[in-house]
Design a protein around this nucleic acid. Structure first.
Lengths: 199, 199, 199, 199
DNA sequence: TATGAATGAGTCTTCATTCAT
DNA sequence: GATGAATGAAGACTCATTCAT
């Protein structure tokens, strides 16, 4: 593997293990198996390296959600959303500590934002994809027509996001099964709504 | 005002303005209008000071949600949830950068967690309060009986939480009116559900 | 007891327990049971306090050796020297860490020296007292006439001094009995000399 | 010369000139002609640096005493001891302020002790060497057979040690000649003993 | 005289970055 | 490109001393 890539992965690993604040060039170099000097042959600065790490985080999730659009009209809406929610929980689980960390350094956040903007990326993209899926299901009559797809997407992904945030905050781990159970529960609630119907 | 309190407020202000990573004892002292040494007459360490700041953040929100429980059976469920959502958006808006920052320092997070645990606090408390409110409305038949109150609370607060997270990530400010509009939209979606009913 | 005296004893205690370098005004005040500010009502500075502590150390030993001069011609020379050596070992045992510490701060040492000079004191005084005793025993023919009393005193007290120094350096404690045994051994050697005589 | 060595010598120099308590990393770096940061490229901490300095002190003396063992049976015992005493006086003269200083910091002393123990060193080693020499002279009949060699060595080196201690305490310098004279006097006294013989 | 909060100079240490090899 | 010793700016923290009460 290219040293450059090795360094990025080392940085990511250290950030996850020690937190942004305690991620030093020395430690990154140690994990990457190279000298501190080498870092500067591949990246302009420590911040530049961080930005490259951050750049690589979102795409995996967006890619996962892309599949969702291909499921319109297939299977049940509930099952499709469940797959999406499970992917979201997994993605948030591994990316949240790093993403949240950025708030500790507004400069880094600002520069990251610029990069996202240039590439037309950002955390909202995931919500848009889910909303797009729901919109297409609406066209097929599998989702209420008078519902705001983006609001629905926000409810679903928001619940997953905060769920992970709270668990990580509390250092409580959760099994894959428990995660799936949570997704099911939340989606079921979202599907039926709160209003007492003519049940 | 007591110097101790002044220091906490100064620390909070600097944390919000510069981020946890760039919050120095020197700057805190400058804003508090005292010497760096004085910080250590009131707090054991910089981390201790941070913990005191963090300690003061959640209670305001929990207090706000307490009012919600007194609204059971009064007004419409939708309106009551809207008040809660607006309070949540406001609270997340000001606390999220700081809360998220903590992930950059796992030690700080761990110690904060200990404090929360001792005081039986934590971010989940807000969700529990909303869930409790919904449960009592269920008893009055104003919310579907077969709905999981906690899942519903998670959907609502999760949406608000992630909404703020994304906006802050993107540095997009939002007016009070826009926030209220968002709350309304999301709640309406949550109330009716996604299932195409016998409309 | 006067607070002034309490402070001196507290300082002495802390110096012995934590070493000169780690003896802080805060700790002294804590042990003395008063505020840090109080220290400065009784002493001009921390150094001044140290000097007062140091001032009190030597006299106890000199007083002990004074008795020696009253023993001339009484008992055996060997026994008298043994009493002196035992007193020396005990005195060095408790004073050496503090005395040695002073070398870490030449300013303190210089000021202490001035004080000693004004009071005509100093560590050599002990050796002079033992030498004086030997001189008087020489007059009575109980010690070789052609021996240099001061050199003999230096040998005896020097051995005791270094013995304690080495033991404290090595953190080896020694029972009273072992100390007495050491004194006896050293004195016996000193008495008979190294030269192979006409034995 | 290697920077590491330069730093050790600088530290030693500053310790002698200003005392352990006033030896700062800033001053060491200034004398060594490097930045403070460089200190930490070669030593883990200031204490670590001190330990390395201390480590280098004793060996020179032990090496000097090694020669003594080769003199058994050669020249006069008196002359051989005189050489040893002169070496001891010179060694104590330069090492005592530093050695004594350690008592001001029990932690430093403890760590130094550990190092000495691992290397099987310590201040007692010098006395053992002199004792070993005397023992071999005993075998040749050049020293009384019924004398305790270690006690004799303690008397001699103890006298030298305390002599230097007192002089440094009093800030009295002593010429090489005066030192030699002192050695001669003390040895002569030790050789003949105090007991009034059948003179 | 006793207090103890406030001080600020000074200390050790860290760490991103540079550069000669 | 790779290295790693050297850097120096910046940081958190300590502590003797002061002073208003």
């Amino acid at each position: 593997m290219e040293l450059r890539e090795k360094i990025i992965q080392a940085a990511e690993q250290v950030m996850r293990a020690k937190g942004l604040a305690r991620t030093t060039t020395k430690e990154i170099a140690r994990i990457a198996g190279c000298s501190e000097g080498s870092l500067y042959n591949h990246f302009q600065s420590k911040e530049d390296l961080f930005l490259q790490v951050l750049k690589g985080i979102l795409p995996t999730f967006v890619a996962a959600l892309m599949k969702l659009s291909q499921r319109q009209g297939i299977g049940t809406v509930q099952d499709n959303l469940e797959d999406a929610a499970i992917a979201a929980l997994a993605y948030f689980h591994q990316s949240l500590p790093t993403s949240a960390s950025i708030f500790s350094d507004p400069d880094l956040l600002a520069h990251h934002r610029e990069g996202l903007h240039e590439r037309n990326e950002g955390p909202h993209r995931a919500n848009e994809l889910v909303a797009a899926y729901l919109r297409s299901e609406q066209l097929q009559g599998r989702v209420r027509a008078d519902v705001d797809p983006r609001a629905a997407a926000d409810l679903l992904l928001g619940a997953c996001f905060q769920h992970v945030f709270i668990r990580q905050f509390s250092a409580e781990d959760e099994s894959k099964e428990a995660q799936a159970g949570y997704a099911k529960q939340v989606i079921s609630t979202l599907m039926q709504g709160l209003l007492p119907g003519a049940e």
